[in-house]
């Protein structure tokens, strides 16, 4: 048997297309040498390396059914993510991955599905939505609750209607509206009562800022969603992504190995600890 490639060695990934989504967010499509497929599970991440700048963990947000077309949505907030976001078609990035333990898309079969996303937190949930819609009959009712800071900060606006048409209830809200916005205003947790799912038979998947996830999980459990079926994706300082460097520890977990997706049942006692 051939040895697995060293997970610390970056592979070449060429940028095929780049699209600016919002003021500070870009979506890149990449392809490995020879268009080699990169099979991944929704919720996993890759380490992207702009040559000589540094590496950053970025969630995979492409379609699991198209593993040769690698899609990443990147918010340009630091030196590395700015360099990734600025990569133009033809540029080559280093790529390691996929890493981590993702969303429970298999466990969710036969259940209702509730997806709650805040801001760029929709990116790691997009593969879940695409997989769910591709196998729509295997799941019960399904709803997406999406909150963004302003209408201009919302991701994938062009796709939301298409998802709605294919059988996903989509509700959106913004913190600050503009004149054109006719939808809800306020935090995403206020959409929860409107989600057409049965709490007792729902698998919930939540991604967004830490505070948003904590309030969402508390609200969901208060409304009868079992904590063992509420899943959150956490962000910490991932450096090696292979459970050897220690940076992404979160209490008893190593997030790159045990996460980034973990259940609220497991996280609840940890989230109340400051600076864990």
């Amino acid at each position: 048997m051939a040895l697995a490639p060293d997970p610390m060695l970056p592979r070449r990934a060429r940028v095929l297309a780049s699209r600016q989504d919002t003021r500070d967010t870009w979506t890149l499509e990449l392809e490995l040498d020879g268009a080699a497929p990169l099979p991944f599970a929704p919720g996993q991440f890759n380490m992207l390396w702009p040559f000589g700048v540094g590496e950053a963990p970025i969630s995979i947000c492409g379609d699991p059914a198209e593993p040769a077309r690698i899609v990443h949505t990147v918010r340009a907030v630091g030196a590395v993510s700015q360099a990734i976001a600025a990569a133009a078609p033809g540029a080559v990035l280093g790529l390691r991955g996929p890493f981590g333990h993702g969303w429970p898309t298999v466990q969710a079969i036969g259940h209702d599905v509730l997806i709650v996303a805040g801001g760029i937190g929709l990116a790691p949930l997009r593969p879940v939505i695409l997989e769910l819609l591709a196998h729509r009959g295997q799941y019960g009712r399904a709803a997406l609750l999406y909150g963004a800071r302003t209408p201009a900060d919302a991701l994938y606006g062009h796709e939301l209607d298409a998802w709605r048409a294919r059988g996903l209830q989509v509700l959106t809200t913004v913190d600050v509206a503009d004149r054109a916005w006719t939808g809800a205003v306020g935090v995403v947790t206020r959409l929860i009562p409107r989600a057409e799912v049965d709490p007792a038979r729902t698998v919930a998947m939540v991604c967004g800022p830490d505070v948003m996830m904590r309030f969402t999980a508390q609200e969901l459990t208060a409304r009868g969603f079992p904590a063992a079926r509420v899943h959150l994706s956490l962000e910490r300082n991932m450096r090696c992504a292979v459970a050897l460097c220690g940076h992404c520890q979160y209490g008893p977990t190593l997030l790159c190995r045990d996460g980034p997706v973990l259940t609220w049942e497991r996280l609840r006692p940890l989230t109340s600890v400051r600076e864990l």
Partner: peptide
């Protein structure tokens, strides 16, 4: 204690990069 930093260096030309692992 096993924690390490994974960091990149480049030379002045920017054409050569190295990845180092150091105790952290």
């Amino acid at each position: 204690c096993f924690c390490t930093q994974v960091s990149d260096t480049t030379d002045l030309t920017g054409d050569h990069a190295e990845r180092w692992r150091r105790w952290d």
